[in-house]
Structures are given as C-alpha cells and as structure tokens.
Design a protein around this nucleic acid. Structure first.
Length: 324
DNA sequence: AACAACGACAACCGCCGTGAG
DNA sequence: CCTCACGGCGGTTGTCGTTGT
C-alpha cells in the first residue's frame, strides 16, 4: 500500500499564488510562526497543499529574501560551491545570504550551466580563470590530480570570497537592488545585529503587489483590485487613488481589515529602527521566534561562515600534503 | 502584426530522512 | 522495533514575458 498523498488532490488549488493568498499566509505566520504546515491550510482557509504553503513561504515570502540579479561574487560562489558540493542546493544556499535554494537552482539550471558549457566549448582557459575545470578525457591519475587541484582552487576562492564578509554586503549594496528597500534594511540589521523581522516579507508582498497592480485587470486574477488599493497605497508607492466603494475583498476565512493591511504594509512610512521594538512587542512569542527563523542568513551566517573558514584552513594543510 | 523560439522563474512532484507514537 | 506523518530537498514541469523572424 502506497503512502497517501500529503494532501487530498481534490479541491486543492494549484498554480500561481495570488497576492491575497500571500497576505493570508503571511498574516497567519505572523501570528503563529512558521511550522506545523499541515495545519496552515485548514487554519487559514487556503485551498492549498501544506507543502505549497511552506514552499511559498520559504521561497518567496520569507523575510530577508533578496531577489533580482546575482552579483559576480554570488555567481562565483555558486560555481565554486557547486563544484564542491554538487547539486546540494540547500547546502549551497546556506552560504549565500538572502538567496533561496530554489533561486540558486534556477539560476544554475537556466544560466550558469549554459554559461559554463559555453566556456567549456570555447576555451578551457577561461574556465580556469574562475577556478572551475571541465571534464576532459584523461587518465585516472590526471583526473585525480585535476580534482585535487579543482578542490584546492575552489576552496581557496571560496575562502577569499568568504573571509571578508563585508564584500557580499557591500556588493549587494551597490548593485542591482539599489532600488530595493531590502538592501538598506539589510544593512541596518546586519550592522546592528538586529534580527530580520516580518516587515521584510511584507516588503516582498508590497513589491509583488506593485507588479500585480500593473497587470491587475487580468482575467486570471481573482481578487478585486479595490481591496488592494489600500494595501499598495500603504506598502507600495504606486497605488492609484483607485475606485471607491464596492465590496472589500474578503474572500478568505482570515479577517483582513484595512487596519490589518496597514499594519502589514504601513511599515514603509515608519522609521524601522525606531519602530522595530514596538513591532516585536506586538508579535506573539512564536512570531518573535520566526524572526530568527528567516534562514541561517544574516544572524546565523556567522556560524557557517566561520565553520567553513575553519574547514578551509584546516583542510588546506591536508590539501597541501595531498598535492605535493 | 503574428507567430515561434527562447529564457526566467514560480510551483509541483516524488523521494527521503526523521521523530513521535 | 515498527509504522506513519511530516517536513525538507532536488528534479522537473508549467507559465509568462521577451526576443527574433
């Protein structure tokens, strides 16, 4: 007898998440904290599989997620870590703050893999520049030596990439996401050892709404636009005045009053540093817990980074012996 | 302007490890 | 020790936007 599905396929909604579903999920997690995913669909009224809820949270709504283009630094780290760890995306993601394993996996599959293949087809030398070797017909001895060299080079590069932790943050500060509010938020939190909090996920939704508002009059979008004008007006700066009147969008079992919406997205008008403590106090203990759950990123990143640095240094000596 | 090809990424599927009972 | 349910992970697919013809 086979294992029953994690959720009955009947009546389970699939496909892209709507902003309203996101808000319901985030507001629930704000109250209860992440975890116990099995209970999420029933408690929220979402017609989603528990796995789908968890995935949506971890890959998209979770605080502290950085979206957009990968920096050169991140790209190199992915290449090196992939050479070291293989397709263990979760492990690789642990060393890339703000990135999800899914994001890294997609980036690898859609871009990096092709880029490396191209370089492989072109000239091997260019690959050597980034410390990655390509598979060539060679003897076992050659292959082993090559592998050792690759590992050594990759570790060295990784060590260089990791040792000045600031490089990543500095780079993210000056690149693609310069218009992303998360950046400044992140810098302030990392510098002051504040934990990531819920606001960042609200930011994610606010940005989502921005894009959604642009394409709002699509048949597939099931939520009334009117119900989100308040949202986007508070969280994103693009909301039009919107139409007045009409029913407020409340198609779920979770009560989402305008005030709730504002509490979700009104943070942007506040000075985070000063409002954070107040915000934290309003959170349940579980919610406070999940402030730190956001990932082993910023807050927890010291640990894996220092560990891997130690590992690099310790293993470096072994590598020297092996190679010479 | 219409269509096809391609790329990016969100989401799903199924397997596996783990902990509770 | 065994069974089962849950959560995590990696591979894969589906969808949508963009670019080329």
């Amino acid at each position: 007898m086979g294992r029953p599905p994690c959720c009955d396929k009947e009546g389970v909604k699939k496909g892209p998440w709507t902003p309203e579903e996101d808000i319901i999920l985030v507001s629930y997690i704000q109250e209860h904290g992440p975890g116990n995913w099995k209970a999420v669909p029933s408690n929220t009224g979402l017609s989603r599989c528990s796995k789908s809820c968890r995935l949506r949270w971890t890959n998209y709504l979770r605080p502290g997620i950085k979206r957009g283009n990968f920096t050169d630094q991140e790209e190199k780290m992915i290449i090196h870590l992939q050479a070291l760890l293989g397709n263990r995306w979760a492990a690789i993601a642990a060393y890339l703050p703000q990135r999800t394993d899914n994001d890294i996996k997609n980036y690898w599959n859609t871009y990096l893999k092709k880029k490396l293949n191209k370089l492989e087809a072109g000239s091997e030398g260019s690959l050597g520049q980034i410390g990655v070797s390509v598979s060539q017909p060679m003897s076992r001895g050659q292959w082993e030596r090559r592998l050792q060299t690759d590992i050594h080079t990759a570790k060295k590069a990784l060590s260089e990439a990791l040792s000045p932790n600031k490089s990543l943050l500095d780079e993210s500060n000056s690149t693609n996401l310069s218009n992303d509010k998360n950046v400044s938020f992140y810098n302030s939190t990392t510098s002051s050892t504040q934990s990531i909090s819920y606001a960042s996920s609200a930011d994610n939704i606010a940005r989502l709404l921005k894009g959604w508002m642009k394409n709002a009059p699509k048949a597939s979008r099931t939520v009334s636009q009117n119900s989100f004008n308040n949202l986007a007006g508070a969280g994103a700066d693009t909301a039009s005045e919107g139409t007045s009147g009409g029913p407020k969008g409340s198609t779920s079992s979770v009560e989402m009053s305008e005030n709730n919406f504002e509490s979700l997205f009104g943070y942007e008008s506040l000075d985070w540093e000063s409002s954070n403590s107040e915000f934290s106090q309003s959170l349940s203990p579980e919610a406070t817990l999940f402030q730190d759950e956001s990932k082993p990123d910023t807050a927890g990143i010291d640990m894996p980074f220092s560990l891997i640095e130690k590992w690099l240094l310790d293993d470096g000596a072994c590598q020297e012996k092996l190679m010479f």
